[in-house]
Computed example of a mutant assay.
Amino acid sequence: MRNGDDFSPAVIDRVAGLLDEFRDGSELTLSQLSCRTGLPRSSAHRLLSRLVESGWVSRNGQVYSLSRAMFEWGALAQRHDTLHRAARPVLHELHAASGLIVHLAVLDGSDVHYLDKVGRGPLVVPSRIGGRQPALRTALGKALIAHSGADPGRARPPGAPLPRAGDHARLRHEIAHIRRQHVAYERDEAVPGIACVAAPIGNGRTCVGAVSVTGPVAGVDPVALARPVRSAAHAIRQVLDDCGSPSRAGGSEHVGIVSQRALAPRRPQAYDR
């Protein structure tokens, strides 16, 4: 993995094969791994050494095992998958009721990480499933920061200039207001001409994600949309609490919680967000 050839499909297959041998939590020696994968000892040792350096595999004397980080990543992926399946029907309901683009996201460092996106329109803006945006430029990110206990001063992207004292004070005031109201707003911050309303998915003690509606500034009424967006976030939280396991999450029993009567009479054209 010291040159471009190391990232060839063949090498990736070998790495995947090595990692797959640990799937049952085994601790294995170099000889065992070489025998099970069919790799020469020298090749297996070289790949294992890089996996240890990368933090994917741990070595204790002569035996290797998956690192704690790998188990943590697996648990994180499972939580995100559970959240996505629980939220999916609610996102579609909110989109149908509002006519706006709906997002589901989590906080990852100083970014929001999009887990889902429902709706599409003629205006192309930079969001996609699996994509990221600086958290402080989005209503989603502000809702997540306000309810996750994160320090807004530490949420700026690496390399971004330090905010002026007045800007920092305004940001803290905004985050405190979001924490009280359980809803966040964005207008012309991430993309000119676009507005967004977001609410955290949590129980007052923890925040597992956030949901938002997005559209053109002229078509997004933050007052009218606050209630249905909060209701959608609460509905997702209820599904997570009631289901308790990935196999039960994502049922249809919560459809109908987001009422169209809670929305403004205007039904704007959906815009891509």
Results as ranks from 00 to 15, higher is better:
R41P: 09
E253V: 06
H173Y: 05
L18D: 04
G74D: 08
L51Y: 10
V213G: 09
A155N: 01
G251F: 07
R179I: 02
A44G: 05
D272V: 03
F22D: 12
L123S: 12
L107D: 07
C243F: 02
I175K: 07
R59N: 13
G256P: 09
L39D: 10
S148N: 06
L91Y: 05
V102N: 01
L76M: 04
I145L: 12
L83Q: 05
S245P: 01
R137Y: 09
L83W: 05
R273L: 10
S49W: 02
V118L: 03
S43G: 11
D13R: 11
V239Y: 01
Y271P: 04
D108Y: 07
L107E: 05
N3R: 06
N203T: 07
S34D: 00
Q181F: 03
R14K: 14
T206D: 12
V57H: 06
Q62A: 14
R172W: 11
L123Q: 13
V124Q: 12
E253D: 05
P89F: 03
H234I: 13
G4V: 13
G130F: 14
D108F: 08
A77W: 00
K142Y: 05
S110H: 12
S58L: 13
V63F: 03
L66K: 11
V239G: 12
V15Y: 11
E53W: 12
E21D: 06
G109Y: 05
S247Y: 01
R50I: 08
F7C: 13
S148Y: 12
R261V: 13
R59H: 08
E21G: 01
A218P: 09
D151C: 02
L94W: 08
A224G: 10
L19T: 12
P158N: 06
S98H: 01
S148A: 11
H92I: 04
S231H: 04
H254V: 10
E27T: 13
I129N: 01
R41D: 00
H168G: 10
P265K: 00
I178F: 07
G204M: 03
S49K: 02
S26T: 15
R154T: 06
H113C: 01
G55D: 14
P122K: 05
D151Y: 11
E186R: 06
L136F: 10
R266P: 04
G159N: 02
A160N: 05
A190D: 14
R2G: 15
G130V: 05
L91M: 03
P246G: 10
A150S: 14
A184K: 05
